[in-house]
Design a protein around this nucleic acid. Structure first.
Lengths: 132, 132
DNA sequence: TCGTATATTGTTATAATATAACGTTATGTA
DNA sequence: TACATAACGTTATATTATAACAATATACGA
């Protein structure tokens, strides 16, 4: 069987909802909002999310257990991600910085080991919150 | 009241258990193992973990919902952490690389924003698993 | 177009992770 | 001593995620 070319019904529904949000969403919040579209159970949402994360359409913000649509057309696969997270308003932005991604993709630890994947989360105050 | 100088009873119990493990532990696994020492409820463990994370004695591996003792004497506060995670055997190692930490601590995003804190998780295969 | 493998779906139940809310006890220090 | 903060203990509950099973859909080679 060939690598999946098109998204399935549930995958489309979940992706569209997450893309509309412009901010990370919790799995159960997604569930409540797509129930009108026929997805009834957590697993239907989690399975769609798993697939979408796998193919890079969605990223998981691990420290928040939340999911956000990928804004980076380069993210064919979700294997190199970096986010900035405001600890006050919880705004999350995907960082798209080629120097950073090159640096991390080529990073070797002290033993010379390289990695196929990474996730980086920066925390601080966004501009709005800093000026309050 | 002064900043806490010594660990409380529960904090000591939890820290000792996590330090002995040499690998990340799940909160409920910690709970089961410290029950003989008097900690009966999840909250007692989570509260101790929260404090220990706050003061940098323990780090949370966000992608695994697990907790590991800090091996890095520099980690006075847990505000700049990097880990390597083997996706096969789940071995986790704290990365102690001054170039990396300098690079990330000084990182500015495209808008010139700096961050007070970060967590980086690298994924790959450890040497043992690569050679299988 | 049949057979086979894989992906996806639907469903119920349950596991695993984490916090709310309450009152009490301990500790530091003015 | 009085006050503030930190830690404790306890019960209940919220939140996040997966197991297990059966059915349906899709891709593709023979």
């Amino acid at each position: 069987m060939q690598k999946q070319q098109y998204l399935s019904k549930n995958q489309k529904i979940v992706l569209e909802h997450v893309e509309k949000a412009n901010q990370p969403l919790k799995a159960y919040s997604i569930l409540y909002n797509v129930q009108k579209k026929g997805l009834k159970a957590p697993l239907q949402v989690y399975r769609a999310l798993d697939k979408l994360v796998e193919i890079g359409k969605i990223h998981k913000i691990e420290s928040r257990n939340a999911f956000v649509a990928c804004k980076n057309s380069n993210c064919v696969v979700s294997n190199a991600t970096a986010f900035s997270i405001c600890e006050s308003c919880e705004k999350v932005t995907e960082i798209n910085n080629s120097k950073l991604s090159k640096y991390l993709s080529n990073f070797e630890d002290n033993s010379g080991m390289k990695y196929s994947k990474y996730n980086l989360e920066f925390f601080g105050l966004c501009k709005k919150c800093k000026n309050k």
